[in-house]
């Protein structure tokens, strides 16, 4: 018997009598009177910069004025000045000088400040990680209360790679001192705008 069959046989023999799966509908999960405010509060508390009142031009000006170290900006927002889209033939290993990546997230989650992104929105999966600074545009009307609503919204969406992002990459491995910018972006700026 190969290992697969051996493991499956042992599991079948040793697993207890079938226990029912609890219904998630019974769980009274937290809801917020002002989900957008809650989302902003939580995401800010975990190190992101949340901004409102920026249109495309204002976002472009912000990016241009704040991220000056490298000059390579990529994104997938049509009509965002100064930000190119990724050439599909580019080798992702040459992206280490990517200063800013701009993406539009699918929706946000108020309870934890996370935004949902799939490979359809990022072209190359490594882009939101390899950039030095991440810029996210989110429609505030998409913000759900909690993770149960988030997965209801995701449903059986057919993504190849899906991702919740909540703030800049970080670590506290050295004596529990929080440092923003471990391996991924050092900052995350999120613009709440329903018109982009």
């Amino acid at each position: 018997m190969n290992s697969r069959d051996q493991i499956l046989a042992a599991v079948k023999k040793n697993q207890p009598a079938l226990q029912p799966l609890p219904a998630l509908a019974d769980l009274q999960a937290i809801r917020f009177t002002h989900p957008v405010e809650k989302f902003t509060e939580v995401l800010t508390s975990i190190g992101a910069d949340v901004r409102t009142g920026y249109d495309l031009n204002a976002i472009a000006t912000f990016i241009d004025g704040n991220f000056t170290e490298g000059r390579r900006f990529l994104g997938n927002i049509p009509g965002l000045p100064g930000v190119g889209s990724l050439d599909s033939t580019v080798d992702t290993h040459t992206l280490e000088d990517l200063e800013v990546f701009v993406l539009k997230a699918g929706f946000g989650v108020a309870e934890n400040g996370a935004v949902w992104v799939t490979d359809a929105q990022v072209q190359e999966r490594v882009l939101p990680f390899i950039c030095q600074h991440l810029v996210v545009i989110l429609d505030p009307a998409t913000i759900v209360n909690n993770m149960h609503e988030a997965y209801e919204r995701i449903g059986n969406q057919d993504y190849h790679f899906g991702l919740f992002i909540a703030g800049p990459s970080k670590t506290a491995d050295i004596e529990q001192s929080l440092v923003l910018g471990a391996h991924g972006p050092k900052t995350m700026t999120l613009f709440l705008n329903g018109g982009i």
Binding site: N112, A114, M147, F164, A166, P168
Partner: peptide, 17 residues
Amino acid sequence: ATGQPITTYSSHFVKPR
């Protein structure tokens, strides 16, 4: 684990690139 509301990244791998 750490008192965070969620980890920074929760990556869902379905298919290889």
